[in-house]
Structures are given as C-alpha cells and as structure tokens.
Design a protein around this nucleic acid. Structure first.
Lengths: 343, 343
DNA sequence: CTGTTAGCGCATTCAA
DNA sequence: TTGAATGCGCTAACAG
C-alpha cells in the first residue's frame, strides 16, 4: 500500500515525469521505454492515487447523483434502478458516482470540488437549486424532469399515456377515468395531458367528473382517489398515472364490489416491481429506467468535455405492457352504453 | 471560483497555517485571531478543496457503498432505502457515499484511495472478496450478511421467522408450509431455521413435504414454489421467506382455487413497498431498512477511528406486521383436523 | 500563540 | 525523447 510513481520510476530506471507520461498516454515516448515503465508499474501493482491526481489535474472523475429525500421512501425502486444503470455506465467511462439526497442548498460535493458534474433525478428537485446550478455553469443533467434551456433526460409521459388510453379506447371503452396522486407533479400532469389528447383524437369528450386526485404523498393516495372517482362517476376503465396508485385504486374498486377488469379496466404507468405481481397483473406503461441512467451519464460526460454544447432534451420512449388488468375487447361482453354496474 | 487558504490568510492578515488551524479547530489560537480568520473566510466564501485536503491528510471523508449487481434489478427497493438512510447518517458525520455495484475484483475506489471504508450490502457478495478485504485490513462492514470475525449488521431472520410462524400456530394452524426462492441464500436459510424452531417449540413435527423452493433468481419463482408445494401437500398456512415470493405464491394459490386467507393463510418477510398493496394485504415481518443503513455507517466510522476494535455483529430486530393475508383464528371457522379443502 | 518550511503524489512546464 | 524543477491547495512539523 502506497507504491508511487517514484517507485515505478526507480524500478524502470527513468524519471517520475516519464512514468506519468506513459501512464497518461502522452505522445513522445520511445516504445521500448514505454514497455519498461508499464512492466515496472504492473510488477509493483501501481495504482495512481486519486487525490493527488485530482489535485494536479482538477478532475475528479466523479459524478454526483442526487435524488430528493422523499423518493428514498416510496418509489425508490424506480430511481434505484436508474442509479444502478448510471453507475454501470459511468464505470465504463472511468467515472465514479457519489450518491446523495438533495436539499435546498447547493450540494456540498460540488463546492468542495468533489464532482465534475451532477445528475439530478426526479421532478421535485427545488427549482431554485436548478437555476442556481445553471447560473453557476456547473455541468448537470436532469432526469425525469425538465426545464427550458437545461439538459434533461425525460420520459415520454405524454406519449406513454396517450398509448395507454388509446388502447383502452380500442378495447371499446368510452368512459375512461384518470387517477393520480396529485396534479402538481410534473410527470403526472404530462400523463394527464396524454390522456386528454387521446380522448380528443378519438372523438371522445373530456369529462372532469372522470378525473380524481388523491392526497399528495400520502400512503393509500390511490385508494382515496378511486373512492372520490366512484362518488362522481362509474367509468368502465381508468388510466392511473403510476403503478402504486393503480394498485391502491384497484383495491378500492374491489371493495366497491367491482371486478377488475370485467367491471372496470385499469392501466398504470411505470412497470416497476409491482406491476407483474399485482392482482390482477397490471397492464402498464414501461419506463426504461436503465436507459434513463445510461443516457444521463453519457450526456453529462459529453457536456463536461464540451462545455459550450447547446442544451438538449433527450426523450426516452415507453412501451405499453399488456397484462390482465385492462381486460379484452368489450364488444362481446357488454352493451355499448352501460348504465350502472356493481354496488 | 477558487478562493484558497492563501486568499483568506491575506485578507485576515495571518499566515496560511493559521487559517488551516482555525478551520480545523486546532487548539492554541487566540480568540481574536480566530474570529478574524473566520470572518475573512466567510466573506470570501471560502470552501476547502477536497482533493488537496485528502492528499495532505490521507483522509477522504468518503465511504463506499456496494451492492451486488443482481440486486439492482429486483429487490433494489430494499437496498435503496438502506442506501438512502446510510447517506443521511454519513452526511451528518461529514461523510459522503460513493455508490457502486460490486464485482469480483477488489473495488477500484478502494485501491485509488478514494474511500476510507466500505459497506457491503447483501448476502451475495463474493466470499473471496470479503476475505481479501479482511486480510488487507480495510475497514468494512457487511449488511444483511455475516461471516465469523467480520463486522456486520444483520437482520434477525431467525427470530422474525420464528415470530411469524408462531403467530400462525397461535391462530390455530397445524400444517404450516415454508416457501422460498432458494435455500442457498443465507437469509432464506436463516428464516427456514426460524420456521423449524417455531414448529418444534410448539410441539409440531417438521414435515419436508411442506417445504418447497422455486427457481433461483427467476421471475415468478414464488409461483413455481407454490405449485410445487401444492403437488405435495395442502397446508392451511404458509410462511414465505420474502414478500415478492409470497405475492407470487398467492397468485398460484388463487389459481388453484384457494382463497386467501380462508383456505390458506400467508405470511411474508420484508414489509417493503409491496406488502401493503398486495391482494390481500400481506401480513409480513418488517425489516427496518433505515436502521440497517444507519448502524452500518456508525459502525464503520467507529472502526475507522478505532482500527483495533474487535469485530461485532449487530442484530436489528424485526416486527411482525399483521394485515389480512394471515386471517383470524381458525377455531370458529373450521374443524381442528381439516382433511382436504379446495382444489 | 503564530509564521516558516516541507511535503502529500502527480502532471506539467522548461531545458537538455 | 527524457529529466529536473515547479506547483496544485492543504496540513503538519518545527521554530520562534
């Protein structure tokens, strides 16, 4: 422990500077010398000291990965996978990932010069922080979030929702509800937009009584949203803005005596761990978490190398995964205009 | 950007060394000087450079957090929460967390001297790696895993399982099955041991035909395990070694025409996101993920400060969370010795 | 109590 | 093509 560039130099019979050159692939080294240095380094098990190199080069080969503290709790499985994918991609480029939950102030890791750039995951990163970062010129990219003029990797929320709702329409549904935890969330708002556009494109009216929210960030929010919906209307299908909310809503539907998908079809969004094991298995929109993580790292590294590159928004498309909760075409099983079904 | 200790020194009218002393709370500084330096530092917005400090002190104030790559996939929500809790705890002690998936070789972050110690989460960390680390004297602690003579934070798998099975027995069950993905997993093996001890302590025989495994690390492993069980026996209750497997098993039971919990009671283990939204809501053993993360960090920091402290195993107890999948006492609803129920 | 000197390990001038 | 000297920003040993 502690073999330095000097040790290698001595063993190879050259100067430390030469060793440094060889190890950094600098030009102007005789092939023979090069081999000798490499051999010595290998034999000694030399590994460059990270701090020393950082100090000399001003580069840490480290990226910060930040998520909002709230997400550590519930839907962390989502960002956990993004994180894991990002780490893998970063490692392949010789980078490491410093993980942190985000707070209101500028991240310390940045000011201490620990990281060369930041990945900010989730749409509840404080706006002020993002603007501060943008202003200060630090390389960073948003994931599952966006802002004009800022680099971001986004989910095709609108398109995914559109596809999901279109599928329900194709199955014969005409009264399709929309459920979410709360509309303030950027992702949910975009999914809501996709829902409305799908209705419109298929000539169906948008009816506010088919839309319900739960309580922001409350466990069982989907359960509440579903109950609220049932008090106003009795759609034959609902599109729910995320899987967890969908599963909670299904519970409320069952308790109201409705069978899924016979009495009410359900489609979610995310396709996380939950969806395949839900009862019934949830038809949902798959979000490619790995792609989010990989693209975020690639984009960030590119920005670091090319600081003046104009900001980009990269959209990761989704895929509708059909399971059982959305049922089959309605034609055979019920009349075109159902009045009132269960309870 | 780039205000150094020299700038602060000049502004305060002292030497850089004095600034360093003040900033590091070294004794032997006149109060007045101290104030002057602090003021200058504040006014200049001075923040110490991480690399320079690390190089001089050989301390990075960084901990590595490693999980096996496999866990990034499925049960990551589990380690994600451990990670988030660990990060929070670390931050409160002025430490950062470097996240990585683990591979066979010694982690690069260690050899580059990036981290002062390691947290290894999960019981599928290569044995050879652990032994290598132990041999090389690096401070590290295992989470949800253990080995003789090695610092670890463990879940009370045996006790949690014992409590779960005892509860089923108290409810009147006499034929209780055990299901898991595979026995090779250390955690599952311990939960199995708890299952057997509970049977024994309550005077019930251990019957191998009531035990079934699925396929290692296969999606739907619990489904398979449940099917295998049903071909051999028809217990009135099952204890399943983790929630995901339990939920999959419940699906198989339902498809076999069994009602949960009426025909078969189910208890899981983990109490992750899945349990409360499962159908029916899953009775399970809660694992306190936050505690695992917090204790891991505290223990690791202690080891770093006191290298010769003898290794410890810290056991985090569990808590049985009763929901609906385990049902109510049997007395009222069925005869003491049921022969064969559904099918 | 405080300033001066000397590295930490590496990369990068400038000479040779 | 290579070596010697210098500095990155900070801490620590030694004076004073």
């Amino acid at each position: 422990m502690g073999v330095t560039i000097h040790d290698v130099a001595k063993r190879a019979g050259v100067s430390p500077a030469t060793v440094s050159r060889v190890l950094n692939d600098r030009p102007g080294i005789r092939a023979e010398t090069r081999e000798r240095v490499l051999k010595a380094a290998r034999e000694l098990g030399y590994i460059p000291d990270f701090s020393a190199r950082s100090l000399a080069t001003k580069r840490t080969h480290t990226l910060g990965f930040l998520v909002h503290a709230r997400h550590s709790l519930s839907s962390h499985s989502f960002y956990g996978q993004v994180l894991a994918a990002a780490e893998k991609e970063a490692r392949q480029h010789g980078y490491h990932l410093l993980f942190s939950t985000v707070h209101d102030e500028a991240p310390l890791m940045l000011e201490e010069q620990r990281v060369e750039g930041l990945i900010l995951a989730g749409c509840d990163i404080p706006r002020a922080l993002i603007l501060h970062l943008k202003h200060s010129g630090v390389p960073f990219v948003l994931v599952d979030n966006h802002l004009p003029g800022v680099n971001s990797i986004v989910i095709d929320n609108e398109g995914g929702a559109y596809e999901a709702v279109s599928h329900l329409i194709r199955l014969g549904h005409r009264e399709i509800g929309f459920l979410c935890e709360w509309m303030e969330d950027l992702s949910f708002a975009e999914r809501f937009a996709g829902y409305k556009r799908a209705l419109q494109d298929h000539g169906l009216p948008y009816r506010p009584e088919l839309v319900a929210e739960g309580e922001p960030r409350t466990p069982g929010s989907g359960y509440i949203a579903a109950q609220r919906l049932l008090q106003k209307a009795r759609p034959s299908a609902v599109f729910v803005a995320n899987d967890l909310t969908a599963v909670e809503a299904m519970r409320a539907f069952r308790e109201a005596g409705l069978d899924i998908p016979k009495d009410i079809a359900v489609v979610g969004f995310d396709d996380g761990d939950l969806a395949p094991v839900a009862y019934p298995p949830l038809t949902t929109v798959r979000v490619f978490r790995d792609a989010l993580g990989i693209q975020a790292v690639r984009r960030l590294l590119y920005i670091i190398e090319h600081p003046s590159t104009p900001p980009l928004q990269i959209r990761v498309f989704t895929k509708l995964i059909i399971r059982e909760s959305c049922g089959t075409p309605l034609h055979a099983q019920r009349p075109p205009k159902p009045a009132d079904a269960g309870a």
